[in-house]
Each structure stands twice: as C-alpha cells, then as structure tokens.
Amino acid sequence: MISQEKRAALRILWGQLRGQNRNEWEHNKVKFLKKIPFFENLRRRQLQEVAKIVYERDYEENEYIFELGQPGAALFIIQQGEVSVEIPRQDGENGEPTQLAVLNKLSFLGELALLDEAPRSASARALTKTKALALFRKDLDRLGETHPDITAPIYRALATIIGNRLKATNELIDRRLKVAA
C-alpha cells in the first residue's frame, strides 16, 4: 500500500517528466497560498516561486505534526483538517494535554521557525485527517538570496503577525492585572 506522501512524491516526479500535471498541481497551490496572510502581498509569479519550495504533507488522525522541544525548522499551513496546539503533561503525569488552540483550514503554525532554530514551544497534533503545507526556513533563506523581492514581504508579514500577538498578550496581561487588583 503506497502512502499519501509517496503517491504525492511519485506524482511530482511524473509531473516533472510530463510538465502538465505539475503545472495544474502548482496552480492549485498558488491559489491556496494567495489566501494566507504571509503571501497575500505577493504577485502570482512570486507565488509560483514560493509554491516550488513548499512541501505538501498528509497527517493521520492523532498524528503529531511537530512536538514540544523539537528544533523548529518549518512553518506549517493547514490546507484541510483540524490541528490541536497543545502542551503535553510533564513526564510521569497522567491525563490530557493542555490544549492552547484548535486551528482549521488556512491557519498556520510554527511560524517562529522561520526566524531561528529555537525549540518548539508547543506540540501540534492532527485532530482529523489533515493536509498541510510546510515552508522551511532554509528554503526561504535561499529564496531570499535569489529573490529578495519575494521574501521581504513575507518577513514583513511575519513581523506584523508577531507584533500583533505581542500586543494581544500585553493587553491580556493588563486585563488580568486589573482584575487581580
């Protein structure tokens, strides 16, 4: 029984030989990427370059996309399915992990991995059969060497997202402090 990934890989190889399938497959990927905040400012031709370096992955129910403490290497964008971002119980403790968020289609996770190799701050587990796109930091760095016009808007979007999250966290802390006072 050939797994989904292998089938996808064979499809790409065959697509490379034929050219036709690959174009169609990449066309869909480009259409999908356009909807993601990271890439919304990119033009179609630029998105095609990004589409060349992203990987399509399929995850079974309850399969981990990444785990807490692993070195971060890639950003994941959910194409289909549901993903739980959670912190597992410490060693020896029983019970369910602490769920931080449930992410759906068009959401992204592990975006800090695009900046450095710092360990993952939480685990990501597929709640249902999930399809995700993975974009690696090193691939993006390499793309930046040849096409800085593509990576600059991506990094700008990343900075905006992280900035917004920081603001939201500050507001949350303020509110909690006020409630406690």
Binding site: S3, K6, Y55, R57, A74, A134, K138
Partner: peptide, 26 residues
C-alpha cells in the same frame, strides 16, 4: 536543478522524520 530532486527524496520521508531529513540534507 534548484533542489527539485532533493525535494522529491524529502517528500518520501515519513512525517515523523520529515523535518529531520530536510535539516540533515540541507
């Protein structure tokens, strides 16, 4: 090639080893 063949081999890696395989190859 632009890393296309490497991409093909990385795609073959099981999910658990996916990031690891990419990092090692890179």
């Amino acid at each position: 090639d632009g890393g296309q063949i490497l991409h093909f081999f990385i795609r073959l890696a099981p999910n658990r080893y996916f990031e690891l395989v990419h990092s090692v190859i890179e």
